[in-house]
């Protein structure tokens, strides 16, 4: 393989180094025994992880991040699945337009969206910072759930439901024994994508944090602005580990190939 396509192999190697190099360096820095962000690390220790655990805002914001990620993912699925079912299987007038409407949160700059939500919900309706974060992230995640679940429906034979009806299954039985299993890989991959997207989001969260309520990435940003020690590297590793854990769990449950296309 390497011999047959040397250029492709070389480019792949460079791409890997560019993508993974900084991550490897970060990993090294997080486990340093020294007190500066330098690489290679000056000895190995877990002291910066301990320091991160003692830094109250990180622990609180990790809790907030997880709550927001779980709630907004659930909400985006609860809204997105019925929407995509209607779009894929129903006779909806203006289908293409509505589909595109669901994509707009990806197109609208997140800072603009964040500012709008901040002004309308927090200032206008006096909704708490946590509530606004959940609503904001739900809007952000909706395109993922609609598209990814929709893709698994679009790939499936639309005659499957008719086949079930013809065989004597009513609409409810047809939905649970045919439509849901067909959507399953899509729902799982949408859940993971949405969860990770919410967990790592900065621009939207930045504008929707209130006093004492911030997500972990935002708190990290705040921390880096004032101090520059390996604590933030240690926290990054935790965030990375969370995302990787979710991905590995998916691999275990369904397999990546099934989730991300065929």
């Amino acid at each position: 393989m390497i011999l047959r396509r040397p250029l492709l192999s070389l480019l792949s190697a460079i791409a890997f180094v560019i993508m993974l190099g900084p991550v490897v360096i970060l990993l090294g820095v997080a486990f340093t025994a020294g007190s500066t962000l330098t690489f290679p690390p000056e000895g190995l220790s877990l002291r910066w992880f301990a320091a991160a655990l003692e830094y109250r805002p990180f622990i609180d914001s990790l809790g907030t991040s997880l709550v927001v990620a779980v709630l907004s993912t659930a909400a985006a699925l609860a809204l997105g699945i019925p929407a995509t079912l209607a779009l894929q299987r129903g006779a909806v007038p203006g289908k293409a337009f509505i589909e595109n409407l669901f994509m707009t949160p990806i197109i609208v700059p997140e800072l603009v969206l964040g500012l709008a939500l901040f002004q309308q919900l927090m200032v206008g309706f006096n909704i708490t910072a946590l509530g606004t974060l959940v609503i904001g992230h739900t809007v952000l995640l909706l395109p993922y759930t609609v598209r990814v679940v929709g893709a698994s429906l679009a790939l499936a034979d639309p005659r499957l439901e008719e086949a079930a009806r013809g065989l004597g299954a009513g609409p409810v039985r047809t939905f649970f024994s045919v439509t849901v299993p067909v959507m399953r890989p899509g729902i799982i991959s949408a859940t993971i994508l949405a969860f990770i997207t919410s967990l790592n989001n900065v621009p939207l969260s930045l504008l929707l944090t209130g006093p004492g309520v911030a997500t972990l990435p935002v708190e990290m940003l705040n921390y880096v602005q004032s101090s520059f020690d390996p604590v933030v590297a240690a926290v990054s590793v935790v965030l990375l580990a969370l995302s990787v854990a979710v991905a590995l769990l998916t691999e275990r449950l369904v397999g990546f190939n099934k989730v991300f296309g065929r």
Partner: peptide, 20 residues
């Protein structure tokens, strides 16, 4: 009468077998 109460056996061009 809805299809599920007609007692018909339908074979589709695409077969429409339940993949799962």
């Amino acid at each position: 009468t809805p299809p599920e109460r007609r007692n018909i056996g339908m074979v589709f061009q695409s077969y429409a077998l339940f993949p799962h």
